[in-house]
């Protein structure tokens, strides 16, 4: 599991992914850790197959008892099927996830972790000195779906928006946007069902000051590539399977 610090200020953002040892047929995923003075948030902690390498990687940055919060952008197995194992490792942690998905996510095992339901209009996750805004991104692609925005670090964790399914050897940032477009096109057209939802999300996100757009698969977007992505996504017709 590779680790990259993508923000260092009063707190830290660390990106985990590009696991060369993952089972061949499962998609590569990006996980993120936000570390404040004494608390950590794990964003989309990943699938059950990646639990051990992910936990081992996190232990380079934080002790187990400081991982106080988990966030699941939606219900997919590559996002949170490891929940039952985190439930055994972090008995006092909280899981922030959509209220709509609670009865479904609990199938993964959630006996000791506290399930904090996120309402449809989003909310805030507080890590003491750090506050992250929960941004609604419904139907992109899941029916209840959220992003996380850090106004201090100017990072938007965008879940499957901006994702590309690539090999574990892929660089962590987009370096040639024009070339990257084709790696994203089909994924967004097929997985994202609603042009209306897409437009609402773009309108909401254009109001944010974003330096890094961090998806759950593939490369992150930095600087001008963030605007390039929003413009490209705005013009893209999605929901092509019907």
């Amino acid at each position: 599991m590779k680790m990259h610090k993508i923000y260092q200020g009063g707190h830290e953002w660390i990106m985990f992914g590009r696991d060369l040892h993952k089972p061949e047929k499962i998609v590569d995923t990006n996980q993120y850790l936000v570390r404040s003075a004494d608390r950590c948030l794990l964003i989309d902690p990943g699938g059950i197959e990646l639990f051990a390498p992910m936990l081992a990687a996190v232990l380079h940055h934080a002790p187990v008892h400081e991982i106080t919060d988990l966030f699941a952008s939606h219900q997919d197995p590559d996002i949170i099927s490891s929940l039952g194992l985190w439930d055994q490792a972090l008995p006092h942690a909280k899981l922030h996830a959509a209220g709509l998905w609670e009865g479904f996510l609990r199938h993964f095992g959630c006996e000791t972790i506290e399930y904090v339901s996120i309402p449809d209009n989003g909310g805030v996750i507080s890590l003491g000195s750090v506050e992250l805004q929960i941004i609604p991104a419904h139907y992109l692609h899941a029916s209840a779906n959220f992003n996380l925005y850090d106004p201090e670090a100017k990072i938007l964790f965008s879940g499957d928006i901006g994702a590309a399914l690539e090999t574990p050897n892929t660089p962590i940032f987009v370096d040639n946007f024009a070339a990257h477009v084709e790696k994203m096109r089909y994924f967004h057209q097929r997985w994202m069902p609603s042009n209306q939802a897409k437009r609402a999300w773009i309108e909401r996100v254009r109001c944010l000051d974003i330096n890094i757009l961090a998806p759950q698969h593939g490369r992150m977007f930095k600087g001008d590539d963030v605007k390039r992505f929003l413009d490209w996504f705005e013009a893209l017709q999605v929901g092509i399977a019907v």
Binding site: F51, P53, L55, L59, V64, L85
Partner: peptide
């Protein structure tokens, strides 16, 4: 499953700064 996965994590994180924090779990 948790025992096995925690043991795998211990084996994978030998040089990690906070490896010992997993012991209690």
């Amino acid at each position: 499953e948790a025992c096995e996965q925690f043991e795998n994590a211990v084996a994978l994180c030998d040089a990690a700064t906070y490896a010992d924090s997993l012991t209690q779990s």
